[in-house]
Design a protein around this nucleic acid. Structure first.
Lengths: 330, 330
DNA sequence: TAGCCTTGCTACATCGGTTGAGCAATTTTG
DNA sequence: CAAAATTGCTCAACCGATGTAGCAAGGCTA
């Protein structure tokens, strides 16, 4: 294996100086008054010899890395998958190099990931669904790195978050209306999440809003904020002492797995049995009988907003809400 | 914003030389005979002043980047999500810095991604599900970067691939046995994928193997390799002129979406109607009525094998098959 | 024909760590 | 007690690209 070609190698081949080669290959040659003839010669040689710029060296010198990092909890659902994919594409469109790292919802891993990204000279970190967004912001601030929260808000950096409350209200209304024929005036069951989580709290508020809109009282016991895991949702439903409700509002796709399993085990799965809606979208979740609709977060709009805020000169540390789309069943 | 702290700053604070600081902070201080006392003093100061190593500088000098890149097609299903997540975790366990980039199944983007990773001085590239694995290998080879194919084999680098044929055979047998009661001796329908794709071809072979095991003839017309998209599967089933089969072997979760939709539209969804199995696992796909099982690719085993091959001295350019797990319904 | 401008380059310091060579002070050995 | 070995550091070159300062050659002006 021969050594990698550098600008010095190309300079020698082209009978030019390394500075000239550098200027040609980074596009600043016209500004630096290198003749078109020389530029063409250098480019051709670089191409022919498979030259590839050493970005580490370039970044070291120029102090502009153009690397943008994202910390994400998991890749195990469509929402985060879509965020990762859209983030990459949008970052590239902005001439940046995206690096995504997965922190498993663990605040220690989040901090470690942030520090690691800082070491790699990222210019910006997007903390997505972070357990401790302000901790990440602190690390960034100490290193002079911009930061921004996505999906879950923090208090120390601009935050871009779905309108969980509004989306939950819309989904609640849709579900209440679907249940109206068979169970008029009956409140829905809310399943999944932790009531102390920002997003769950907002969705519970929206859930209540929707019921209020229809003049339906929601007993506290109808809110089963039992955690996210499918097994926890299953257990919470098992422990539920009331009648099997006609409609269930599920707080996340991960909880939905447990809900479906539970309904299936009781033979209650089907459009004529228990209806459900779910916050977050999944293509198969949408196809399960009894599904009335899903609150699909608008990832494209969120990401556009992220880059709009990054482009603005002095972003405020405020929370921007992005409306959700309510999908139809099937 | 103050400038970032460097080893020179810490050296001044600690009354030591930059070399000593460097040695302390990169762990080579014992080898370089720096006293424990000095080491401790330097570490404390670095910690106190929020020092963070500039990896670009470090890599530039030492020529070992410890960066490992992965090119992946999409993040839109559980399989690739699991691969991304497991890859990150395993790479970190090996002391490497993982960078994943998504190439949208586009050979041009794949090549661009490979070149970009090379510029970032990656030491290795894992080409996952690549449209043109050998193209990526060529780019890597020219730059002295190791490469390895995952999920789809190439001819120029070691490849680690699921045992698609064996998994398809096992799933076929499971599905045939489940259908045996109501439709004995009847062949299944195969839906989705492109017959020219390596993995689809292997799965069709396994599909035929399973039928042969049970002594069932498979007419060519039962193989609907119509493309992956849900809509294509839907259209292919619409164009199917035979009787509605009792069992369908679906080639991927993306095709499954169309199959479920089609069955639903015909009221054929349910354990007493058309049964199906699917290559690739999805938690909701598994919960859809009529699901008999899924061929779940063993991502952990694949990733272990990837790093085992990377650890071995001279990996051969051969294909390693990793068995799949057949999951139960629900 | 001297003085100035423009063109088209090159020289060199620099970014922040890393590392081989080397040196002074102390300790051990013969 | 001198020579050798060990300890605990420092010096300086280097990795590859960048960009400021500057220089030689030629053209243009006064």
């Amino acid at each position: 294996m021969t050594r990698r070609k550098t600008i010095y190698d190309i300079a020698e081949l082209a009978n030019a100086s390394p500075s000239a080669v550098s200027a040609v290959l980074n596009g600043s040659w016209e500004k630096r008054r290198i003749s078109r003839k020389t530029a063409e010669r250098v480019k051709a040689l670089a191409e022919a010899h498979g030259y590839s710029r050493n970005i580490q060296a370039s970044v070291l010198r120029s102090a502009r890395s153009k690397i943008i990092g994202m910390i994400i909890p998991k890749y195990d659902n469509r929402y985060f998958g879509a965020i990762a994919e859209r983030f990459e594409a949008t970052a590239r469109n902005h001439g940046l190099f995206p690096v995504i790292t997965c922190a498993q919802r663990d605040p220690e891993l989040e901090a470690a990931a942030a520090r690691e990204l800082v070491s790699y000279q990222v210019e910006t970190i997007i903390a997505t669904g972070a357990t401790d967004p302000d901790g990440i912001t602190d690390i960034c601030r100490a290193a002079g790195v911009r930061s921004l929260n996505l999906d879950l808000p923090g208090s120390a950096a601009p935050s871009i978050v779905s309108d969980n409350r509004g989306g939950a209200r819309d989904l609640t209304l849709k579900l209440l209306d679907a249940c109206h024929g068979t169970a008029p005036g009956q409140p829905l069951l809310f399943v999944g999440g932790r009531a102390t989580d920002h997003n769950t709290a907002a969705r519970i508020a929206g859930f209540r809003d929707g019921h209020a809109d229809r003049g339906i009282e929601v007993p506290e016991s109808n809110i089963l904020a039992c955690g996210y895991a499918g097994a926890k949702a299953y257990a919470a439903l098992d422990a539920w002492t009331g009648d099997l409700p006609r409609g269930i509002f599920v707080n996340s796709t991960i909880s939905l797995e447990g809900v479906i399993r539970w309904l299936g085990d009781r033979g209650a799965l089907g459009a004529d049995r228990t209806l459900f809606g779910c916050f977050d979208w999944d293509p198969f979740g949408a196809l399960i009988p009894g599904n009335v609709g899903m609150a699909r977060q608008d990832v494209n709009a969120m990401m556009d907003e992220v880059f709009r805020v990054l482009g603005s000169d002095q972003p405020e540390e405020k929370v921007t809400l992005i409306p959700c789309n309510i999908t139809d069943a099937g």
